[in-house]
Simulated assay, not measured.
Amino acid sequence: MDDDLYPPLPVRAEGLLDVGDGHRIFCQDAGNPDGKPVMVLHGGPGSGIASMSRRHFDPDAYRIIQFDQRGAGRSTPNIGEPDADLATNTLWHLVSDLELLRERLNIERWQLFGGSWGSTLALAYAQTHPSRVSEIVLRGVFTVRGSELDWIYRGGAANLFPAEWEEFLAPLPENLRKDPLAGYGELLASEDRGVRERAAIAWSVWEGATVALLPQEAFRNQYASPAFALTFARLAVHYFRHGAWLEEGQLIRDAGRLAGIPGVLVQGRYDSVCPPITAYQLHRAWPGSSLQLTEGAGHAVNDPGILAALRAATDGFR
């Protein structure tokens, strides 16, 4: 795996940016300060900066920028508790945060790099501010359409993971199992911390169980951590119950706005979280994009072939 990654890279600068609404986002800057700017967008919503993500880029060629999205990681306030305000935490707030950060860093245009939910945010930002984007590299494409949510949260993927699906449903009373998204929304808003924590862990463990082509205990352990799960689950349910504040199919419908922006879509053939149909349809709608369907891979960034494809893409745009 290390052969497909650049060596570990320390952060050169970091800090908090006040983006309004009582939010401050935690940002990091690494690599060559005079290099090609790239914004690395984390998944989730709610997972936060991953240091490994810097290793997709040649540190001599790239200036690598990351941030914890509202409510996640070291951004404040953290959204893990039920009394934390979610009213000013939407996809379009995140798009505005990105643009404010770009202006603050005095960057004319930057490359966007994101996987899963990070691909959603990248597409939303690029379609809103296409003149500010030089290239886009996406992995495990996700656009928050109803069909995509039905697949992973309303029983589609249960056909591949029946035992794990039963565990996912276990915290939900029978009357809430028809729509697990809505049901988890109720549990995660409970005043009983035990109820919230059990629900958050079950939600997160489902994600960890389905993410890799072959089971990886490290994923399951990370997702089962209560400190991680409470934020991750609450933000994900909040976003997905609202369809990420997108019109149905919007990001594929409006892919024509990306014409002139080169893009690489790296997609695992056996991705059971974000099946390949979404990446395929986006590619067909986006002039100038290329789709690299990676055989023998699922959704995880370290599944076979994914890291090599991502490095080839970033080196190609270097």
Rank of each mutant, 00 (worst) to 15 (best):
Y6P: 00
P10M: 06
P10Q: 06
L16G: 05
R24H: 12
R24A: 13
F26R: 15
C27T: 15
A30W: 10
A30S: 15
M39I: 09
M39S: 05
S47P: 05
S51P: 06
S53N: 14
H56S: 07
P59W: 04
R63N: 11
Q66C: 03
D68G: 02
R70N: 09
R70D: 02
T76A: 10
G80T: 04
D83Q: 12
N89L: 14
W92L: 09
S96F: 00
E108G: 09
E108I: 05
W110F: 09
S116T: 10
G118T: 11
G118C: 10
G118K: 11
L121E: 02
L121F: 03
Y125R: 01
H129I: 09
V133E: 03
S134F: 02
R139S: 10
T143S: 09
T143G: 04
G146L: 07
Y153K: 08
R154H: 15
G155K: 04
P162L: 12
P162M: 11
A163I: 13
P171C: 03
E174W: 05
K178A: 10
D179Y: 00
P180A: 06
L188Y: 15
D192Q: 09
R193K: 11
V195D: 01
R196C: 09
R198F: 03
V211I: 15
L213R: 14
A218C: 02
R220E: 12
N221D: 14
Q222M: 08
P226V: 01
A227V: 15
A229L: 07
L230W: 02
F232R: 14
A236P: 01
H238K: 12
H238D: 13
H242E: 06
G243Y: 10
W245D: 08
G249I: 03
L251K: 01
A255W: 08
G256Y: 00
A259T: 15
I261A: 04
V264L: 06
R269D: 01
Y270C: 05
C274S: 09
P275T: 09
Y280K: 15
L282G: 01
R284G: 07
W286N: 02
Q292F: 05
T294A: 07
T294L: 03
H299S: 06
D303H: 06
P304I: 01
G305C: 07
A308R: 15
T314Y: 05
D315K: 03
